[in-house]
Write a protein that binds this DNA or RNA. Sequence first.
DNA 1: TCACTATATGCACGGAGCGTCCATATATAG
DNA 2: CTATATATGGACGCTCCGTGCATATAGTGA
Lengths: 235, 235
Amino acid sequence: MSPPSPEREAQHPAADSGGAPPAASPKIAAHRATAHREPRGRGRRPAAEVREDILDAAAVLLFREGMAGFTIERVAAEAGASKTTIYKWWPSKGALAADGYFHATEAELEFPDTGDIRADLRSQLRSFVHLITATAAGRLIAELIGHAQTDPDLAAALQTRYAGPRLRLAVDALNLARERGQLHPDINPESIVDQLWGACYHRLLVTGLPITEGFADNLLANVLHGIQDQPRNDV
Amino acid sequence: MSPPSPEREAQHPAADSGGAPPAASPKIAAHRATAHREPRGRGRRPAAEVREDILDAAAVLLFREGMAGFTIERVAAEAGASKTTIYKWWPSKGALAADGYFHATEAELEFPDTGDIRADLRSQLRSFVHLITATAAGRLIAELIGHAQTDPDLAAALQTRYAGPRLRLAVDALNLARERGQLHPDINPESIVDQLWGACYHRLLVTGLPITEGFADNLLANVLHGIQDQPRNDV
DNA sequence: TCACTATATGCACGGAGCGTCCATATATAG
DNA sequence: CTATATATGGACGCTCCGTGCATATAGTGA
């Protein structure tokens, strides 16, 4: 119904060639030296290449428009791929969104154990606060979590690749500290993490109150005061 | 473009029906003995009646299928009303969902001030835990909050009629306790609420860990231990 | 009693998106 | 060079959105 391949040259809105990705935003692919989508008619392209294009497009769309504007059709258009191809590899919108997000961010998520639980938790918490307030990922994470409430694929992916690792990191730090005798022996690490991270999510997702570093530090002080191994005078 | 003043009568979808059962499941209408929408030809029905039917249908659909199956078209069908009518009163799916939810629940949300901050917070928190774990509203609330991340109407409604009041209730209790000298003078009540409620939401929305009464009580103990007016030995 | 008006009704539209078919083209493996 | 795996455009039927239109009727004021 239209000329074969009118658009494919500057297909990618993403970074690609440029070497100045300020992190936390789509870093996308410089993965292929090849400039860009060659003018192609029909026919097969290497699977890996197509996959990469789709993930790039998904990430770009996701960060540009959020979950609201994120549709399979638009990803397909943006990637210069066909819906058929996308459906061949991803079962649902949620699954693609998750992969798109992680494709673009791929967080390192490593924090050294300094032996000081307060310092360790603070750096983890601050890093998280920074992520959700100072980068484009903040709103997006809220929207992803939001969508996950009605999308099992997305929920599973977030669980496995996002919430799980972060939770484990903090829990590990807490367990180490406890073994070191820095914390009350019968604390429940998961609950501590719920208090710290949950408080932030509460503001992000529910009340909309501002999330600042001061807020985070204050939070941490409160929580630690409640669990450090000192005589407890109540309960 | 249209007749002068068609709408001005019962414009607000809001409150309406009188004080009835608290409950947390659809109480819906016995308001009309009639079981189901009479087969009617065209023509006008009393506005209030139609509105009621729509809200009932919205609530039923919401509780039965969650936000996933909640569409304007289905509400219309279920209510025996026409989409046109719905769009005349509600600007969006989110707005209708919110009204449908509150129509069905209309929580009382009153807690006496007993003078014991621990007891007061515990009853509030337990009531909340009960709501999100033991009633159909739990999953639904998660889904509503989820959708609110990309639906401004819904977000505003939840803010005003759900999160706001609950937050205020707890903050008030904390302020009273502080004035009574039960709490450290420079606590930030909002943060305390973030810790308590946020921890629950964290499990509900993010990690999926179980939310029990024991969890809630433990949470409260931790938090209070951190903020009660006793010598603080750190920070 | 009756005409008038506000309001609900069915119907139908164009648009978007979903998820799934085809038949066709071609890049890579053998 | 052939075979096969795989991407392609295009089209389908479906649901839903949000909005128009002409028509029917309940309630109301004359």
